[in-house]
């Protein structure tokens, strides 16, 4: 793929995604997602909120799965496959159901920084899209921030565009 596209050709504007400071609560992030992404005319997928620090540096992303994990009571999080047979795991959700009103609503008041995925991996606008694909595959990511000069956030590249571009190249071959 010598003539593969650059990240800058596929990236989308960061303002397509809601923004939230890291100290705001999970509950507030949920409100944003409901208002900005789920009830609006446009629906950008993956549904994610970008998390920033006090100086508008990106520090993480918060997707729907991250929010659900953030609401999960701690006793469920500590469970591992070694401790409980797989077929019994979902049974614990009954306890979660009974605790939801109290525990999960309390957990929703925690800051988003405790539920987000930290932004550790980035691409540059002039990187090949295969680099973005590599980082997504090896770090289980669905989107990647695009930084200019390793500092300024200029966009986001999503798995859907990377997949679309790479699959076109495969089908053309």
């Amino acid at each position: 793929m010598a003539d593969s596209k650059m990240v800058k050709e596929l990236m989308i504007d960061v303002f397509e995604f809601p923004h939230i400071p890291y100290w705001f609560s999970i509950r507030q992030a949920i409100g944003m997602i409901k208002k900005s992404l789920l009830s609006g005319e446009k629906c950008i997928r993956p549904l994610a909120v970008l998390v920033f620090d006090e100086k508008y540096n990106l520090v993480g992303t918060l997707g729907l799965m991250d929010i659900l994990k953030g609401l999960e009571p701690s006793f469920l999080k500590s469970t591992t496959k070694a401790q409980v047979p797989a077929e019994n795991e979902s049974g614990l959700s009954v306890i979660w159901n009974s605790l939801f009103d109290k525990e999960s609503k309390e957990l929703a008041e925690k800051p988003v920084s405790e539920a987000m995925v930290s932004a550790k991996f980035f691409v540059e606008p002039d990187d090949h899209i295969t680099k973005a694909a590599y980082l997504m595959i090896h770090n289980d990511l669905i989107l990647l921030p695009v930084l200019e000069n390793k500092k300024k956030l200029v966009g986001v590249v999503r798995m859907i565009e990377i997949f679309d571009e790479l699959s076109d190249a495969i089908l053309k071959a």
Binding site: P18, H19, I20, P21, F24, Q28, G31, M32, K35, S36, G40, K42, F52, D53, E54, K55, Y56
Partner: peptide, 21 residues
């Protein structure tokens, strides 16, 4: 203390006359 970006949340929806997104 902070100079960053957010969205309208909670009561802010009442205070600012702009769309939620």
């Amino acid at each position: 203390l902070a100079q960053t970006v957010t969205m309208p949340t909670d009561e802010l929806t009442l205070k600012l006359d702009i769309p939620d997104d």
